[in-house]
Design a binder for these strands. Structure first.
Lengths: 144, 144
DNA sequence: ATAGGTGCAAATGGTTTGCGAAAAC
DNA sequence: GTTTTCGCAAACCATTTGCACCTAT
């Protein structure tokens, strides 16, 4: 099966350019939000009905390793992925237990906290995962 | 199978007192650190060779629901559990990618950050999961 | 030509669940 | 005696992997 190949990631560190990789990256770029593997697979399948979930997983690992995307867990058993942002991409995710929306929260305190950890514990940070669960303003009134 | 029952959790909100529940809670209390279900099961099996992993899982859910323990993910597919601490138990976990140890880090910045979220986003926080991955002072010099 | 990627189906690992036997109250 | 839990094995779900085939370079 031969496909149109979008080479707009050629300058990146991804070695062999394949149709599947182009497709996956362009979906992630357009989407600009957290996607899990299944959802990415669902969206990719609309353009390439033969793409397999294994390919999605393999390439997510590759993209992560090459620093193109970030992985977050957000308290789920599955993982979420999103394109890496430039600059201060440190943020806190607020996961609403009512509507399941994910709200991003940025604050200078996050950078300060990370700096404090590095200094006080001599710990060199490579990955930041910060999230809170609770109820957003629309979903207040928790069940109990 | 009849066992000695430790009733020291009778005042808690756990409805029927069973030998398995007493055992599991006492192990968690003695241990005072992050345990995953398998490790808790391993330790419980030494005292009660017949206890099943399903019972461990079911009771971990129960304890969590009743507010006796906290659950954390720490970037793993499995979950870790620990007894709930009194007062400002908010902390950040540092997960070392070298030796896999988990270091707890406390800072007033954490409370400030959470307060800021509640105020600025009108988000009512019910669960806090904060962790960083990286290399501890002994494991510095990441592989690449 | 060849290193490496892909699809498929099977394997894995943590967690959950249906069910009949047994314990708690 | 009734309600709930327990142990077992099977089911689940996200993810990973072995393998034969195919593609990019």
């Amino acid at each position: 099966m031969r496909m149109q190949i979008n080479r707009n990631y050629e300058q990146s560190k991804i070695k062999p350019v394949t149709a599947q990789r182009s497709l996956l990256l362009s979906i992630m770029q357009e989407t600009g939000m957290h996607l899990d593997a299944k959802e990415l697979y669902r969206r990719a399948s609309k353009k390439d009905a033969n793409i397999s979930l294994a390919t999605v997983y393999r390439n997510l690992h590759l993209f992560k390793e090459r620093g193109l995307i970030d992985e977050r867990h957000l308290g789920q058993t599955r993982c979420y992925y999103e394109m890496k942002r430039l600059g201060g991409h440190q943020h806190l995710d607020l996961v609403c237990q009512g509507c399941r929306q994910i709200i991003e929260f940025k604050s200078p305190l996050i950078r300060k906290l990370i700096a404090e950890v590095q200094r006080k514990n001599d710990f060199s940070v490579t990955k930041v995962e910060l999230y809170l669960e609770g109820y957003c303003n629309k979903c207040k009134e928790p069940k109990r």
